[in-house]
Nucleic acid binder design. Sequence first.
DNA 1: TCGCAGCATGGTT
DNA 2: AAACCATGCTGCG
Length: 843
Amino acid sequence: SAFEEGRFCEIFHKNASGWRCCESCGKRIHCGCIVSIHAFTLLDPGGIECIPCARKSVFLTSNPTWANSLFFPTPTAERLKELSVKNWNQLAGSGPVPWRQAPSLFSSSITSSELHPRVPYEVDISSALTKLSCAERIPVSSLEQRKIEDLSERLHNGCLKLGAREILENGTAGKNCEEHISSCLSMSQQSSSLKEDPSTPQFGLTVPYTTTNETNDQFGVSRSNLRPTPPSLSKQFIGNLQNGVDSSGDTQIRNARPRADARGRNQLLPRYWPRFTDQELQQISGDSNSVITPLFEKMLSASDAGRIGRLVLPKKCAEAYFPPISQPEGLPLKVQDAKGKEWIFQFRFWPNNNSRMYVLEGVTPCIQSMQLQAGDIVTFSRLEPEGKLVMGFRKASVAPPSDQENETNKNCNGVSARGDAELADPSSWSKVDKSGYIAKEVLGAKALISRKRKSSTLGSKSKRLRIENEDMMELKLTWEEAQGLLRPPSNHVPSVVVIEGFEFEEYEDAPVLGKPTIFATNNGEKVQWAQCENCFKLRKLPADALVPSKWTCSDNSWDPQRSSCSVSQELPSEELEDLLPPSVSVASKKMKAAKQDMENVEALEGLDTLANLAILGEGDSLPASAQATTKHPRHRPGCSCIVCIQPPSGKGPKHKPSCTCNVCLTVKRRFRTLMMRREKKQSEKEAETTRKKQQQQQPLPEKLHDDTVVNNDAGNSPKRNVDVHEISDDDPSKMKSSTSPFKGQIDLNIQPEREEELSPGSDSGGMMKLLQDATERYLRQQRLSSSGCSENPSGNVLRRDGGQAAGEKPSNAVNLGSNNHDADEDSPATLTVKASVSTTAAG
DNA sequence: TCGCAGCATGGTT
DNA sequence: AAACCATGCTGCG
């Protein structure tokens, strides 16, 4: 296919933006779509290079010392030492060089091994380079050759040959590639592995950290530099999605990348990848000519920032970049902050689950001097050639919930940082900064990672707190739901691309977050129903209409006649419901229910009070079984609702019809009360209906009374006019005497409100019933409110069925058993609303 | 009693 | 499923 042959962009994106020219051969290459990202690589100095050229340059122009160092026949310490010095000189000239000029990087993989003297030569690289396509390889011993072959293979398979297919098949291609790079270039070392495999050939290069003093002074004689990634390995991902925006001029890009010298097996998690801006780097390096090697960064957890003064170090980071320690006591470590002030921390570990947990102790003064708190980020870098550890920080752009102070977003270096907010700015993703670090995550991944990191390091407590937050609850969207909210940008025709049999629509602009609507077919015509934000009426729109997230009747440009909330709904809600799939109608109503939640809080409380009184009013105490109940959102300790007073489903004793436990009695009593209320309400409705009909002498504009109200007209009403009061528990005959269909059986899940719509016992899903009930009640409300009856002077009648003003506080409990109809009638409705909301939250 | 050092636990990746 | 790591717990000075 064109795609496979690499002609994809030439065919489909012929006229699209994002075309650039290879710096080497001048070939025109499209850089503006995700599909073309395999075709080129961004160059550190700017510009791009096509992959063939890049491949050539990898082997022809990459630092020869890398090859040399890999191929030296006998990796003795002496030899390595010589080499390392040589490498350093070759890399950095005869002295320290500004980091920006430090060339690459292949050496850095060596370097880090050099850092750790007793590092076993990890054979990830094994068999490596044999397959290097370049032929100018130096003959090597068979052992080394085998090791090298492997690396070569990795280079090819993992990095160099990372093709579009791989990218497309794996959304995290960027990450993969980086990991590949890491693994390709890494020589893993792990201090702990020393004891695991002491016989492993060692790759000791630099001065061993044999003593504390030595460590402090000589730690980090790194030859690595800031440009560890050779051009051909610098796969560009994000950049390519952004039409090849040139990187020049922006030094603020926070480029997260794993260190190339993170050992293969010990690749750093992305959340520890250093994300330095050039300015930050420059600030750290100050006026010196030192080379800065960003090592890793970590978001401070609550413990880290707490008073204990222990900063937990990511294991892999500690083992990769800090001196190896074999004793738990560890070593004192001298760390310099960005101001040049020196701190001494104890770098040590605790045995933990056959592993180690590395900590820096005594960080409190430093943390405090930096005014850091949980959520802020500390960065670790190394100053070359001094090998000094430098600790910087970056304030969180969004203060954690516990923050008292919300400092301006500012990094340690006094350089204004754009903070994490910039991560969300796609324009910054596409660039390569001068350090050679590449924004490489697939679109959006960066922001995601950033956000994820934040939540993952703030501790479970704060996480829990945050989940309590309503806003967070609203974010509980499934991927499918989120997809459903995305709409193509308007006025854009996608280019359709077929990749391996799948059609992809490509848009130039980002998708639009739309409002969830309900698609239906109305008389053969495809339409969608959108709900007004204000009045919740459903309006019929063309199926292809793009509905913004905040949509009201006034935005209804498709149907001017119904572009006001005062205009009634086109279809009665129950008819509309017939058009909709049940799940959709319920879901749309859940939103409404949630919306009304705030307004109903007081009513809900009243209902809870009622429930509590029902149970406790007689001096009963909750049964022991009630202690361990099924809790659910919105139910607090002491909640006595049906759910809370029962043991978790499946647990606890079975209840027989004759059971007289508190739960059963309560349920029976509540049931009877609800029945009474319902009957009374309906009879009143009937009476009102009749009266209204008499008054108006004409039917209501919309189908208002064709549900249970109408059904009840069949003749039950007269005998239903019963006062609401609780029937004593010890009189089952009274219960039977109600219109309940029960015949001596108690169904704990019975929904008296649905008695006539559903056969009793036909549904055991209590919450679902509540939900359905809420749905129906909502529809009834809708019908009433949309029917224009609220303008009826006798509107107080209608109000009783849901039109009650939000401000009115029902006092159900107090009025229980009285004739306060308003209060009594409102409760069931609010109960169902509450149930819907709870279900939503729990779901 | 307090604070700390070290270890253990369990949630998260 | 295992490793990691945030934080709780406990014993000791």
